[in-house]
Design a protein around this nucleic acid. Structure first.
Lengths: 193, 193
DNA sequence: AACTATACGGAAAGCTATTCCGGTTAAGCA
DNA sequence: TGCTTAACCGGAATAGCTTTCCGTATAGTT
């Protein structure tokens, strides 16, 4: 992440800085879960016990924080694909993975909205989704499509975005609502006569 | 939309006020189309040529403006249902109406997002959708479900919201994308073996 | 122990939304 | 017409956030 083109030795990151970064990530994870990714920055810095300047030093853009908090979970989601593919038939593997992806999104209050924000700061988050989850889903999808069980005119990217849209919380509805609607969409993927 | 020809005890609305209201609605319609319903208030008041105070006097809540701008179109959408029902079979009538609803949403930049905002100010907008469009869709849906062509475990409200979610613009994707995904969802509504 | 690149915290600046109010004007009436 | 008055207007003031800036503090190095 850092370069060393100058003759001077590249100093290591200070320990206090690392502590604050950890505290911020931890606090952000908690706050995001409770108040969504649009929560006021101060709420996060207060919880982490640092000043706002510290937050912006380490995470100049809000999307940087969001991405950092989610990276592990995104990775875990992507890595679940091969196992499912090996353990189940094409259609079932795909369905199970989409279920997992759906659950991941549905529990992240406001994540789905941020993903579709027109704020260029979140471009990085979208890119992250595409590069990490895209290939994982594409593999499952190709297999299922090749097996003739899933319509061929829908791409991995299409699905990734569409499910993210459907996972946005609707006031007055439980998360179960979103899960049900995603299930309907997935049913729409299957071939019919 | 205005003009109460029966002047009763209370004073009539002043002509300049009416002019400003019309100008604001016209400006809001334009701005909403170009910058979405979240556009800065000042953009609207500047276009309308009035002060911000004037906007807030007539439309205390942002949702009041949005609702006023859309009322005609919402009504028109709801009123299209009976004709479709009379002219086509249950499944086709439902599909055609959903297509119309989808197109309506897809062309309104940011409307769908506002609809799912957790801001209580938009509660009125949601209510408006439900009371105007809900019955129209419910009639079509009931008929199609009774005919056994559409799964019975999805309600009119479910669909109204789900399609609104899918109609949110995705950065980097054309509106045609949203239309395609809605089509997949609708396919998911049909009975399968 | 001294030195200095890093990092810290919070004040300041910049934006928007929303409220408030002194001045203005259209409507009603003689 | 001209007067009276309630309705209305514009924009200044207020409020809540985000983001930048900078003087001070300190970890890591020598």
């Amino acid at each position: 992440m850092q370069e060393n083109p100058s003759p001077a030795a590249p100093r290591r990151r200070r320990a206090d800085a690392q502590r604050n970064i950890d505290a911020l990530l931890e606090a952000a994870k908690t706050v995001f879960a409770g108040s969504g990714v649009d929560a006021p920055a101060k709420e996060i810095t207060d919880l982490a016990g640092v000043g706002v300047g510290t937050l912006y030093r380490h995470f100049p853009q809000r999307s940087d924080l969001v991405t950092a908090v989610l990276r592990r979970e995104i990775d875990a989601c992507a890595e679940a694909a091969p196992a499912l593919s090996a353990a189940h038939g094409p259609d079932e593997a795909l369905t199970k993975w989409l279920d997992r992806y759906t659950e991941f999104l549905a529990t992240k209050h406001g994540l789905a909205s941020a993903l579709h924000s027109d704020d260029p700061a979140f471009e990085a988050l979208r890119g992250s989704f595409l590069t990490q989850l895209g290939p994982a889903l594409a593999a499952l999808l190709d297999t299922a499509q090749a097996a003739g069980e899933i319509r061929p005119d829908v791409s991995a990217k299409d699905l990734l975005y569409a499910i993210a849209l459907l996972c946005q919380p609707v006031p007055g509805e439980e998360p179960a609502y979103n899960l049900r609607m995603v299930a309907v969409l997935i049913d729409g993927l299957r071939y019919r006569t």
